[in-house]
Amino acid sequence: MLRTVAMGVLILSGLLLILIVFRKKLGWAWISVFGTHLILAAIGIYIVNFSGILTDVYIPLNPTTIGAVTILGLPGVLMLLGLKLTLF
């Protein structure tokens, strides 16, 4: 029962999101901006991982780290680097 309700909420929210995107005339331009940010985030993390500046630091590529860097940009890479050095 709970799984059915969750699936219904997911489908409804997806349909409403599609409706908002096309009704507000956002078009597909936001997808290219998001894709560019996503690619630049991955490149930033790769530079930290494979540059050799800090040999003990490795930031894993997973949805959480990519999402943080996509939203925050270069300061997001520095934030993850600081968290890695401080916490681990």
Rank of each mutant, 00 (worst) to 15 (best):
L10H: 04
V77Y: 00
I18E: 11
L72T: 05
L80F: 03
G44H: 03
F34H: 09
L54T: 07
F22L: 11
L78I: 12
I11C: 08
I43L: 13
L15H: 02
T55K: 15
S32K: 15
S13H: 06
T70C: 11
I18T: 14
V9Y: 09
M7S: 14
F50H: 14
L54K: 10
I66L: 15
V69W: 00
G44Y: 05
G73M: 06
G27P: 03
A6W: 08
L87P: 02
G73W: 02
I71P: 01
T4P: 06
V57P: 02
L61A: 08
L87G: 04
I39E: 05
L78W: 02
T64K: 09
I53K: 07
L15K: 03
W30Q: 10
T55N: 15
G35Y: 02
L54C: 07
V77P: 00
L78A: 08
A29M: 11
M7C: 11
L17A: 15
F34T: 13
G52H: 05
G73T: 05
V48C: 03
T64P: 00
P60G: 06
L38M: 13
G27K: 04
L85T: 07
K25L: 07
R3K: 13
A42R: 05
A42S: 14
A6H: 09
L40C: 09
L15Q: 07
V69P: 01
